[in-house]
């Protein structure tokens, strides 16, 4: 009889980080399915490519840092970073653009900061923002168009476009995204005229509405499974919606709320990206502030900035604010009259 000496608690819930990440990955499947249905094979190929690259980059960095490779690879966090990038990048993004995004995400934003749990910025969004700034053309002209679905490129052709650089062929399948289209046309047209464009389709934004709906569904599943809490997605969407209602009620001047919610990367951002626990605020109150600010920033950048979408920049900007938010939003502990805000030794 050899007795194990262990400190309490002795019982543990069997849900490890790798399982949490696996559930997150599964929850993106409806969104990926919708993307594939409406925009062709591009996202699926991107996802596979990005996940493989992410795992490779993570393994290499772990080896260089002298960490146990399989122990850390099994936590699935690198795979999630790759997956999120694959879901966010334009469908026909050249392979090297994806590679730059993934490698900078894993190497620069994650491993060089100390690996899992130590990165102040959302790795996937660092990679995304980097390629968005560095390769603006590649990042704006490679969006597949749902309206062209009837003659969309097949699997082989998509592979050719992405990996062999058949960029001449790509023009036939791409178009500006609904957010981009609206933002640039509304200056000289009425809302009705702008919405005539095939990218909007009969609903809000052809294809995009389904993709966003599917990500919303997956996100709600994560909330139901208690992988994430409702605070960040709800406050993010509320922040975005309130800004839109307050400043952009006139559809002939500003992008309408329906497009804000259902046309861009809003739902993927709200449920899967802004909720990345490592780089988000921690307390309930903090999460509400963090999410709401991201929502406000998304609206601000989309409406008055140069970029048609703004999830990556908004999330990264708020990542900067997280330590500050965390210091000033601790919950009130049982038996205390008020929360102890601030830093010991300082006022507050």
């Amino acid at each position: 009889m050899s007795l194990v000496q262990q400190s309490s608690p002795h019982a543990h819930r069997a849900r490890s980080t790798s399982q949490v990440m696996l559930i997150v990955m599964l929850a993106t499947l409806p969104g990926l399915l919708a993307q594939t249905l409406f925009f062709g094979w591009g996202n699926l190929i991107n996802v596979v490519w990005c996940v493989l690259l992410a795992l490779g980059a993570e393994a290499t960095m772990l080896m260089l840092r002298g960490k146990p490779v399989s122990f850390f690879l099994k936590d699935n966090t690198a795979a999630v970073t790759g997956l999120l990038l694959g879901l966010s990048l334009p469908q026909f993004t050249p392979w090297w653009v994806s590679a730059v995004a993934v490698i900078s995400a894993i190497v620069l934003a994650k491993q060089l900061y100390g690996g899992l749990g130590a990165n102040p910025f959302n790795p996937a969004m660092v990679g995304y923002a980097l390629v968005l700034v560095a390769f603006p053309v590649a990042m704006t002209t490679n969006w597949a168009e749902a309206a062209m679905l009837a003659n969309a490129p097949g699997f082989g052709e998509t592979l050719n476009i992405i990996f062999a650089g058949q960029q001449t062929a790509v023009d036939a399948y791409t178009m500006a995204t609904p957010l981009d289209e609206y933002k640039h046309k509304i200056a000289s047209h009425t809302a009705q005229e702008v919405l005539q464009h095939p990218t909007f389709g009969a609903g809000v934004a052809r294809g995009w509405e389904w993709v966003n709906g599917a990500f919303l569904l997956g996100g709600l599943a994560l909330v139901a499974l208690r992988i994430i809490t409702w605070h960040i997605p709800v406050s993010l969407l509320a922040g975005l919606a309130l800004m839109s209602l307050a400043f952009g009620a006139n559809e002939d001047v500003y992008t309408p709320l329906s497009l804000h919610l259902l046309a861009g990367g809003t739902m993927l951002g709200a449920f899967f990206i802004a909720t990345d626990p490592v780089s988000a605020a921690t307390s309930h109150q903090g999460k509400l502030i963090y999410g709401a600010c991201i929502g406000v920033l998304i609206y601000t950048i989309r409406s008055w900035g140069n970029y048609p979408d703004a999830v990556a920049f908004s999330v990264l900007l708020m990542n900067f604010a997280v330590p500050f938010i965390d210091h000033y939003t601790p919950p009130r502990t049982y038996g205390h009259h008020k929360p102890r805000r601030g830093i010991p030794g300082k006022t507050g």
Partner: peptide
């Protein structure tokens, strides 16, 4: 069973969700 080896904290906040005293266990 013997718990698996400790992994890095990913700040998931499940501890804070579960804490009956409303502390911030990860901090």
């Amino acid at each position: 069973s013997t718990p698996p080896p400790e992994q890095p904290c990913i700040r998931c906040g499940m501890c804070a969700e579960a804490c009956p005293m409303e502390l911030l266990p990860q901090q």
